[in-house]
Structure formats: structure tokens, C-alpha cells
């Protein structure tokens, strides 16, 4: 396939594919294996995918299937330790009145049941619409909506119950100009 196109796709999607893989596998080694296998598959079959929009869905779908296949042949121990994979917090905090420690948030997300974790991760990558999430996971749109909505409720409960440490959940004062309810 065209080397420049491949480079472009790697530049565009490597980070987010790895994050999706990390959320699925819950350890860095398997996440990297999954990401590499996905691009290997693309290098093999990508000639028929000139449309980058389709390539994105294709990459995420293949990565998800690779994960399902790899899980069938082996069960690896899940370390549950995400700290080593989190970048240092930027000096500017996220512009949100809801703040939660990044490690705590990731721990809560990776501990969610897979049925909720997978669509929620795709949603939080922000690169997929609800329709595209349904396409990648091969489930109806209504199921995507239901799982994302319920997944968020599970996340809230985890944070509030102290699974991730209630003390780590902070309600920051609203930023100037933000709407109040």
C-alpha cells in the first residue's frame, strides 16, 4: 500500500488505537501487541481502503476483533496498575467544574464491566459518533446509548463509593461564564 498513506494513518490513529487497546486489555504489553497487530492487518488488506473515514472504523473494528480472538486463546493476568501509563498532568487543569484525579478516573474506567467499558472508551476517545461505535462493536444504536448511559452511572457510583477513592473526587468551583443548573 501507499507508504505515505500508511504513515498518515499511523500518525492519525496510533495514539487513540493504543488507548482503546489499553482499555480493552488493561495492560501495556497486550495493548501494544493489539495495536501492532491491527496495523499489520491494515498493511495486509489496506489497499482496498482508500477512504480514511472508512479506515478509521476498520482499524478500531479489527483491533476489537483481535482482542476478542486473543482472549479466546489465552487469559492473562490483569495488573490493574495504570499509573505507569499516565502522562504527567499538564499544568493547565481540564476546563471542567467536575475534577477527578486522572489515575482514579482511569482505574474506575478500566474496572468497569467490559460491556460498558468498551463503548464508553470509544465515546471518550471522541473520535467516534454513536453510530460509528455501533458499527465498530456490531451492536444496535439503542444498545450503544443504553450502555454508555449506564456505564456512566457505574462510573459515578465507583467514584462516589470510594473504589477509586472518594477523597480524590473534587467538585471544583464553576469557571467564570459557565452555566449553572
Amino acid at each position: 500500500m501507499d507508504g505515505l498513506m500508511f504513515q498518515h494513518l499511523v500518525d492519525a490513529w496510533y495514539d487513540r488505537l493504543y488507548r482503546f487497546a489499553f482499555s480493552l486489555a488493561r495492560n501495556g504489553d497486550d495493548a501494544l501487541d493489539l495495536t501492532q497487530q491491527t496495523f499489520a492487518r491494515f498493511a495486509e488488506k489496506g489497499q482496498s481502503l482508500r477512504d480514511q473515514g472508512k479506515a478509521k472504523s476498520w482499524l478500531f473494528t479489527v483491533l476489537y476483533r483481535e482482542f476478542l480472538n486473543s482472549r479466546r486463546v489465552r487469559v492473562r493476568e490483569v495488573s490493574g496498575d495504570v499509573d505507569g501509563f499516565i502522562e504527567q498532568q499538564p499544568s493547565e487543569p481540564a476546563q471542567s467544574s467536575f475534577a477527578v484525579d486522572v489515575q482514579v478516573a482511569m482505574k474506575a474506567l478500566t474496572e468497569l464491566d467490559e460491556n460498558f467499558r468498551v463503548p464508553l472508551t470509544l465515546f471518550y476517545l471522541e473520535s467516534h459518533s454513536y453510530k460509528e461505535i455501533a458499527e465498530v462493536l456490531n451492536i444496535p444504536i439503542g444498545t450503544v446509548m443504553s450502555r454508555i448511559s449506564r456505564g456512566k452511572e457505574h462510573l459515578r457510583r465507583k467514584l462516589e463509593s470510594g473504589t477509586g477513592g472518594a477523597a480524590n473526587v473534587v467538585q471544583m468551583p464553576p469557571q467564570k461564564g459557565q452555566r449553572h443548573g
Binding site: 495495536t35 499516565i86 471542567s96 471522541e126
Partner: peptide
């Protein structure tokens, strides 16, 4: 709430060595 998790997920480091190997 969503923005906090978008931020958290975006903080996961993707290893540069993996990109190089690909």
C-alpha cells in the same frame, strides 16, 4: 463529567517505540 474522562483517557501514554516498529 465526560470532559474529565476524555482528559483522563487522553493522558494514557502510547509508547513511541511501538509507533517506530509499526
Amino acid at each position: 463529567f465526560d470532559a474529565a474522562f476524555v482528559h483522563a483517557l487522553g493522558s494514557v501514554k502510547a509508547p513511541e517505540a511501538g509507533r517506530t516498529m509499526i
